[in-house]
Amino acid sequence: MTTAFPDQTTDTPADATGYNFAYLDEQTKRMIRRCLLKAVAVPGYQVPFGGREMPLPYGWGTGGMQVTATVIGSDDVLKVIDQGADDTTNAVSIRRFFARTAGVATTESTPQASVIQTRHRIPETPLSRGQILVYQVPIPEPLRFIEPRETETRKMHALQEYGVMHVKLYEDIARFGHIATTYAYPVKVNGHYVMDPSPIPKFDNPKMHGCPALQLFGAGREKRIYAIPPFTRVESLDFEDHPFEVQGWDQTCEFCGSDHSFLDEVVIDDYGGRIFICSDTDYCNQRLDADARKEAV
């Protein structure tokens, strides 16, 4: 088997490429599969995994790629989003990669996808039972900033010594008057493990709680896998006098008028003109389509 990067320009079916199904070799897949079974059995706990490197730059989210390659089957329909968008270079590349190496169908529609790989967002459209959301994780250990030693962070998780997390959040309050952490906001899973939800905006944190879909997290550099089973309690850390709050906007989406989705600010001209649009492109498009249908009736 060759280890060269799959050709980006030709559309050959999976069997004709000479690559393993979904690229990974079967032994690596089995090992990651066993880790995934333990990850769902101990929600929020980081399972270490071994195996070979995927020959991709880390910006691609090798951890997410490895998890997707391990769970995906020929019946799956894959959606890939990068910061909410299906059409960025990264999202398109990853989608093509699996279309080519696994022959899977792909989609931009959240409800039609059975597996969704994401970087930095949870779709606005509520997920449903049977779907799997795969997160690309750059730094899996939420305690790393305070304790560089793995042996120590493992002990802290075992003893649920999470006071330092609260101290960090409280320092925000002392300095800014509110909790300034807006991305990768730590959560506690099923009342035990404190977990890094990956750099999603804290706006998305409430979507993790009781989510009917299975949530899987892959960190490629540190080789960690963790999971949140469906319908699991996920609480964002906070204080009685400073309860957890999500971001809000005074503006609405320029395209679809949404007043409840996560908005990106976009500069539109050289004179400082700016608009706000939904970061979830599929959600925005579906709202526009629905409006168009209403007008047509």
């Binding site: 995934l36 079974l37 059995a41 299975l214 469906p230």
Partner: peptide
């Protein structure tokens, strides 16, 4: 594997 994953996650 997928059925085992679903079995343990649900």
């Amino acid at each position: 594997f997928r059925r085992a994953l679903t079995a343990l996650s649900e």
